[in-house]
Design a protein around this nucleic acid. Structure first.
Lengths: 240, 240
DNA sequence: CGGGAGGTTGAGTAGTATCAAATGAAGTGG
DNA sequence: CCACTTCATTTGATACTACTCAACCTCCCG
């Protein structure tokens, strides 16, 4: 396997085996040879919080495999307000939609927590789809799962109140990113980012968070949110 | 090609060539042999308005190809309120998500205008994916397009007002189903169904429709809506 | 020490939901 | 053909959610 890692600044990039191991968490049906195909032109990037991976309107020459860190995928609505669609973390592939369809990206992606991502050029991805039906199948299933999530999201935003949605979002974040030993969510978001997930105003998030705090559902230390009463939050969020 | 059409009640089902021609509108990379594979166990159904094709929670043994008619795909939220996710018409495939992922369906599908659909058993679909990478690619692209639409939808519902969304939905319906010679939308929906797309209350739709009517943007004849001022509607809906 | 970004609080209000009731349309059975 | 049922639509009155605007605070960084 060609090793083209940039190791400037003492940055520790994953080696091929580590990449492959991480990739296998999500895609189980690639053998070593195919994995080589994917990471042949290995090109890892270390990205700091705030970096943009791709932006709405970009025409992609490839997609990105996320080795570590957290990204947000969002659309920019009228008035420039972000709507966060989902998060990506270790093991996810982002940007393959516009890559495959050869259309400009319809979302943007930005780093929430410092990340290492690996660029996968278009032809590698296409080759893989052509040579490995199982991989196609997994890609389809993955997209389908995203689509299912999106559909639920639509229903929630359309039918639930902001309070319900905020509680639900906290539960989703808990499921996706887990809690540390003190029950704090292992992802830190600004109030504005929270608002941009829930689809509401920053002020509303602040008011509701302090309402949850007073009710004893959560505790707050700056951007860190401690989940105290899971059952109450699930009840409020209509999550069962 | 095996012909197992049920031709009871003088129902005129499409023959294989017609099915294939219709299918080719959406999927261009299947040769005759592969098309045979798909429709080998041809099983057409004539479905009246209100019929349920599949329901949330069903585990699918296959998917359906829509030959004619219009279906709505929706989720049932809390309180039993429908959220319409999208419509399907001639040339679309529905239900392949749960079919492929072998998970219970996360949406339901119901007939809006009398439809002829053709059942495609799971193994046919899977075989095709395994044998024809181009087909996989088209399936992926199709799912990706749906996903892109869903993402836009999320952003709209989260950020736009009900008035804006209703105007936008009218424009979408115009694009999807077209207008007849008198500029009436070629799809009839109840006020409740409209509300379940927009994500609002039936009464709100009624009030806004009559507001649009008074403003001269539309005319109303029962369930038929005539699009009078496209530019005004686009402006209201923030569609550009 | 100043400036900027993020966070918090309060007051006022527009936009929608909800509830209730009346009307209209379509079908059913006697 | 009419009374009756049922469902869809419409209108009005009222309540309330959540947005907006404005002011102020806090923390951090240069």
């Amino acid at each position: 396997m060609a090793l083209k890692m940039n190791q400037n600044q003492n940055q520790v990039f994953p080696n091929c085996d580590q990449l492959a191991a991480c990739f296998s968490k999500s895609f189980k049906h690639l053998n070593a040879e195919q994995m080589n195909l994917l990471f042949f032109e290995e090109q890892c990037l270390l990205l700091k919080r705030g970096s943009v991976i791709y932006a709405e309107g970009d025409s992609a020459k490839g997609c990105y495999f996320v080795y570590s860190g957290i990204l947000k995928v969002f659309k920019t609505g009228l008035e420039g307000k972000e709507q966060i669609i989902r998060f990506s973390k270790s093991g996810d592939i982002i940007g393959f939609r516009s890559a495959l369809s050869e259309e400009p990206a319809c979302t943007s992606s930005k780093v929430i927590e410092d990340a290492i991502v690996c660029f996968i050029p278009n032809h590698s991805l296409t080759q893989l789809i052509e040579k490995n039906p199982m991989f196609s199948m997994e890609l389809i299933k993955m997209t389908c799962k995203e689509l299912g999530d999106a559909n639920s999201y639509i229903t929630d935003i359309a039918q639930k109140s902001v309070r319900e949605r905020l509680a639900e979002v906290l539960m989703q974040l808990m499921n996706s990113f887990g809690l540390d030993q003190d029950n704090f969510l292992q992802i830190s978001l600004t109030r504005e980012e929270l608002a941009n997930i829930v689809g509401t105003a920053t002020e509303s998030v602040i008011r509701l968070l302090s309402e949850f705090k007073n009710a004893g559902y959560i505790e707050i230390k700056g951007r860190k949110i401690k989940i105290v009463d899971v059952l109450a939050l699930k009840r409020v969020g209509g999550v069962y």
